[in-house]
Design a protein around this nucleic acid. Sequence first.
DNA 1: CCTGATACGTTATACTATAACTCGTTCATC
DNA 2: GATGAACGAGTTATAGTATAACGTATCAGG
Lengths: 160, 160
Amino acid sequence: MREPAFEPHDHRRCVDGALQTAESLIAARGLRLTPVRRRALEILLERHGAMGAYEVLERLAADGYGHQPPVAYRALDFLVENGLAHRIRRLNAFAACAHPGADHHAAFLICRLCNALAEIPADALRNHLLAGAEESGFAVERLSIEALGLCPNCQSPEPS
Amino acid sequence: MREPAFEPHDHRRCVDGALQTAESLIAARGLRLTPVRRRALEILLERHGAMGAYEVLERLAADGYGHQPPVAYRALDFLVENGLAHRIRRLNAFAACAHPGADHHAAFLICRLCNALAEIPADALRNHLLAGAEESGFAVERLSIEALGLCPNCQSPEPS
DNA sequence: CCTGATACGTTATACTATAACTCGTTCATC
DNA sequence: GATGAACGAGTTATAGTATAACGTATCAGG
């Protein structure tokens, strides 16, 4: 299966789709996709990669929003809580969700050279782990599966 | 299966075993388990839980070792590289490996109340993920699987 | 209107991590 | 034994990530 993150593709469709889904999803929950939140999502959506909170903050500030960390962290936390973005713990960073609204569980593939980030389905994996955890009586609430390595494009012999 | 991390047990055996394994493992590789490194491992081994680098540093400093972050980070990095400790990304913290020398891949179960941390086998999970990643041409180098939730002891109705 | 809830902005601070340099020890080689 | 490379550990300084706490504006519902 080809991952959009690792292939050239019409990225505008990713962005537009995600924004539209975000709008309706948030509306359906009676919440508000305020300007800062929407803009934060747009910024994350610019690439299939993770972005640090401070990088998002700079961008928000440049657009006239607040200049202090909580501005970014609050917007990002909101997006994460609502399944519109993910927190990538390995990178201490955030990324837009590639399949918002799909109620999926994902594993992340992070390229250590080009920083591309793909999201692959992990429901089966998750179920296995949940079963394993239950054997020791542990109740899983949140699960993160993150792989670091090389994407198809960065495995070529010549490091550009 | 009962996880030692969630059960009363003779912890001295965990500690002694781990230290002995560490000694021989490091020796076999022609490396040195220096006093700071050994002490850092001992500190991590005190509990089945994660510890921040700065907490380890305080302890090392109290024992007469250096007071600056690199002292702790270097010792911890050494332990991690040699499979004697793990880095828990979700917590930005470190934990002694529960099965050093076993050449295993583990998933972590982190109790969000008592901070206990168990290490369950994840070789099967890992293989599944590797297969899935390969489908998109991604070459996994490092994988972290971390679950946050409640350990058996913290699921009781009364939060002490 | 008024009110409570929510969101955004601020200041200040805490926590995590690494770069870069110095010094001393170890050890193989001469 | 002297020499120099490799390593380990200490230092200073700085970079990067995250949250607490408080004030004000906005908005929906009564």
